[in-house]
């Protein structure tokens, strides 16, 4: 199919990329600036802020907290989200469409509302606010994304493959284990990665439901409130690098999905 080149959409796309990358480029640039202010002029080049970041004890603790939470969320959201993807794509039960729509409701309800609601519920139920509640909140937040990531390859999955496995003697769960899931693995892996990242960088739910929990975003939040030490910028630059590396892992899958027939 011959593709047209239209200059206006191309220009907007270029501007969009600049818009996207400008803030990232800016704080990366200033993370190497010796000046203690997040502002011009540029007075030199230093990696001192990175060193300071690593040396700050609070960072280490918060990092551990965030990683721990994100890892738990990744596992839970991936399992539950993948299962729900199967429900959405394959289940033939009454009210399936209604329930499937319901399952994506968390995407359209503001995080603030979710966080406030969770806070209220947990306290009413007598549950202590802390790691558990943050993980729970994050799982609610992230699972629909995992489901979406797994649904795409699942829709395109050839059901005859499962029929062939059953035909050769594999029961339903064996088929899942030996055929379906291995083939879907790239999508599941991307969903898991997404869940991890979403949880790691999430602030609102952690703030509302995590008493005594000081996740990394929460720490950064308080740091930037009280003057903005460039260690925050160093953190931001490192975060971006981590996410970029993770995105590289997902890029082949994304390309294949975009290229493939609908």
């Amino acid at each position: 199919m011959r593709r047209e080149f239209h200059w206006f959409p191309a220009a907007v796309t270029g501007l969009m990329l600049v818009y996207s990358l400008l803030p990232i480029a800016t704080f990366t640039l200033f993370s190497f600036n010796p000046s203690p202010f997040y502002a011009f002029p540029l007075t030199g080049f230093t990696i001192g802020w990175y060193e300071k970041l690593m040396a700050d004890g609070r960072i280490g603790d918060s990092l551990l907290a965030s990683v721990g939470i994100a890892a738990a969320v990744m596992v839970l959201a991936t399992v539950i989200g993948t299962m729900f993807a199967f429900f959405v794509v394959r289940a033939a039960v009454p009210f399936k469409r209604l329930l499937a729509g319901l399952g994506f409701l968390p995407l359209v309800v503001p995080v603030l509302v979710l966080a406030a609601g969770l806070q209220v519920t947990f306290v009413e139920a007598g549950l202590p606010l802390g790691f558990g509640t943050v993980i729970l909140g994050h799982v609610i937040y992230a699972t629909p994304f995992v489901t979406l990531m797994v649904m795409a390859p699942l829709y395109r999955y050839n059901p005859v493959l499962d029929a062939a496995a059953r035909d050769l003697g594999a029961g339903p769960f064996t088929t899942l284990r030996l055929v379906t899931l291995p083939i879907l693995w790239p999508g599941i892996r991307s969903g898991a990665l997404l869940a991890f990242l979403l949880s790691f960088n999430e602030w609102a739910i952690a703030f509302f439901t995590g008493r005594g929990v000081n996740s990394l975003p929460m720490l950064i939040y308080s740091l930037q409130r009280n003057g903005l030490p460039p260690t925050v910028l160093a953190y931001a630059a490192l975060s971006t690098a981590v996410v970029a590396v993770a995105a590289l892992a997902v890029l082949p899958l994304l390309t294949r999905l975009l290229r493939g027939p609908k």
């Binding site: 050839n158 029929a163 062939a164 029961g171 055929v179």
Partner: peptide, 20 residues
């Protein structure tokens, strides 16, 4: 009986070979 318990094996029209 479910397919896995039946003593028959099928060669499918699109072959359904496992890609992985």
């Amino acid at each position: 009986l479910p397919p896995e318990k039946i003593d028959a094996a099928t060669v499918f029209q699109d072959y359904a070979l496992f890609p992985h």
